[in-house]
């Protein structure tokens, strides 16, 4: 009757991962909705508008960009990562076989899937924006060298978007875990970030440049992966001793 076989952490974590993929499917609909809204805004106004004239001749230029879609996706993954650490989401696991490590592993697995999904869709929505513009505007008025996207560029865009989302999810997850330890972190974290950015401008900027100015994809990937492992690792360590609240 009683199985003496020890339970395998990885098999339990992967069961939880599958459970969460099905359970949190609504989060993905939320992403698609955010992307469509972003697309709508992009089409409506463009990112910037420039107009000049001297009475006889007037020029007006609209710049369209898919960056709003990416930004919305980044906010979504930040929100999703924080959500996973909330009481409401943790409670969903109570009826299952679980411990702190399996919970964190399955959460990380879920977030990685969300990043891949988010990275791909946000890049594809960018392509969609170009296609819509191509058919709705007078083609002669489109000035862009990069209008037609090379497939390799699309892949690069997807990879970079995914990596940024991984990084953001790590930051969001750690933030969520810290706020569970103490609500004070809700104030401390933004205060520290703003504080550093004002007082130690060089450090803060070099930190940003560390990621943004990296021109080699493999190196950028390596930086992101190592940073994320640190972020998630610290999250696991912090949440390991925490009790399950109801």
């Amino acid at each position: 009757m009683m199985s003496l076989k020890e339970v395998d952490l990885l098999s339990i974590s992967s069961k939880q991962y599958v459970y969460k993929l099905k359970a949190y499917s609504t989060l993905f609909y939320g992403l698609l909705l955010a992307q469509i809204i972003a697309l709508f805004f992009s089409l409506l106004n463009g990112i910037s508008y420039m107009s000049s004239g001297n009475g006889e001749l007037s020029v007006s230029v609209n710049t369209y960009s898919a960056s709003l879609v990416i930004i919305f996706s980044f906010f979504w993954i930040l929100f999703a990562a924080i959500q996973l650490t909330t009481k409401q989401y943790k409670q969903l696991e109570n009826p299952l076989v679980t411990n702190s490590i399996s919970r964190n592993l399955s959460n990380i697995g879920f977030l990685m899937t969300a990043c891949v999904f988010g990275g791909i869709t946000s890049s594809l929505v960018g392509v969609l924006l170009r296609i819509i513009m191509y058919f709705t505007f007078d083609r002669s008025q489109i000035i862009s060298d990069e209008f037609i996207l090379a497939f390799s560029d699309l892949l690069l865009g997807i990879s970079v978007a995914i990596l940024y989302m991984v990084l953001i999810s790590g930051i969001g997850y750690l933030t969520g875990v810290l706020t569970k330890v103490s609500m004070a972190f809700v104030i401390i974290i933004p205060a520290v970030i703003i504080g550093i950015s004002k007082a130690y401008t060089d450090i803060f900027q070099s930190l940003i440049k560390f990621f943004t100015l990296e021109s080699s994809l493999p190196l950028f990937g390596l930086k992101v992966i190592i940073t994320s492992i640190l972020l998630f690792g610290v999250s696991i360590l912090i949440s390991n001793r925490e009790e399950v609240s109801q």
């Binding site: 009683m2 199985s3 020890e6 339970v7 952490l9 339990i12 409401q88 409670q91 969903l92 109570n94 009826p95 076989v97 679980t98 411990n99 702190s100 490590i101 399996s102 390991n240 001793r241 109801q246």
Partner: peptide, 17 residues
Amino acid sequence: NNLDVSAKTIFIDDNMT
């Protein structure tokens, strides 16, 4: 926080979600 105990135990109450 023990996975083996968790696998052999089920806890039912009306807070289950």
